[in-house]
């Protein structure tokens, strides 16, 4: 059980009376890259928002590192080692790159002090030298790829054990997407666990160990990433490889 970093059982969640997620069960093991694929409106982002605590689940359980966290505040969940790279990057456009990163360490600074944040900042600059070059620049003036890197580095500032990424490839050029996915793989090599939500199913499944397919709020297929890539249903729906006879 200890290797189950994140565990979700029978989760229902949504907005107001609208139930978006229906009876979701999944797990993420330590050191894995898990891909969650699905079309627009399938509930992928809702799932990540529920895990990080932005949305209260209607029913079901979420446990992170063996502790129930379905009623915890976002700050507590972030402090316990879970971080979200939000969809569309959502960098703080009118603040500098460095200030964005410092905000990522908001909880860390409270828990461990300023020195820990500085240490983490140095580590991010090592991982993303481009960000160091642009540390004084306003985040809004960065290119899309750079903003995505900033969003990732900002999430890493909280020293997460599990990094959840919400569609990191949105709106980026194919070459940049390749860089971003390279970084995701690199993150895993450094001991992080990644839950990757993507519409770009092929790219996600190529770097993932396992995958889940979410369709209108339900998980319809799951399994090793290679199996999903070979699965004809998945191919037809998400990989665009159906042969027209």
């Amino acid at each position: 059980m200890t290797d189950r970093m994140l565990r979700i059982r029978n989760l229902d969640a949504g907005y107001g009376k609208l139930r978006v997620l229906k009876n979701i069960s999944l797990h993420v093991k330590s050191g894995e890259i898990v891909a969650m694929i699905g079309a627009n409106g399938a509930g992928k982002s809702t799932l990540l928002h529920t895990i990080i605590g932005l949305i209260r689940p209607m029913s079901g359980e979420i446990s992170f590192l063996g502790q129930a966290c379905d009623r915890a505040a976002v700050g507590r969940i972030v402090a316990s080692g879970c971080a979200l790279v939000p969809e569309g990057r959502q960098v703080f456009a009118s603040m500098s790159v460095e200030e964005n990163l410092l905000l990522g360490g908001y909880v860390l600074q409270k828990e461990k002090g300023r020195a820990a944040v500085q240490e983490e900042l140095a580590r991010q600059y090592l991982l993303f030298p481009r960000l160091k070059e642009r540390r004084r620049q306003l985040a809004g003036t960065l290119s899309g790829g750079e903003q995505q890197m900033l969003a990732m580095a900002r999430a890493l500032m909280s020293r997460p054990k599990l990094v959840m990424m919400d569609e990191p490839s949105t709106g980026l050029a194919p070459l940049i997407i390749r860089d971003i996915f390279k970084i995701i793989r690199q993150l895993r090599e450094e001991g992080n666990t990644v839950l990757l939500v993507e519409q770009n199913a092929r790219a996600a499944l190529t770097i993932a160990d396992r995958g889940y397919v979410l369709e209108v709020g339900k998980i319809i297929v799951q399994g090793p990433a290679t199996d999903l890539l070979a699965n004809s249903d998945v191919q037809r729906a998400y990989l665009g490889r159906e042969k027209i006879e």
């Binding site: 990080i52 932005l54 505040a73 976002v74 700050g75 507590r76 969940i77 972030v78 402090a79 979200l84 939000p86 959502q90 960098v91 703080f92 456009a93 009118s94 603040m95 200030e99 410092l102 905000l103 990522g104 908001y106 909880v107 600074q109 409270k110 900002r154 909280s158």
Partner: peptide, 23 residues
């Protein structure tokens, strides 16, 4: 300061700010 940065983050993206544990 840390609190000031949190304040300024409200201006750009409240959603992202919340995701980093800012109330």
């Amino acid at each position: 300061s840390r609190a000031g940065r949190a304040l300024r983050s409200l201006h750009s993206s409240e959603e992202a700010a919340e995701a980093f544990g800012i109330d």
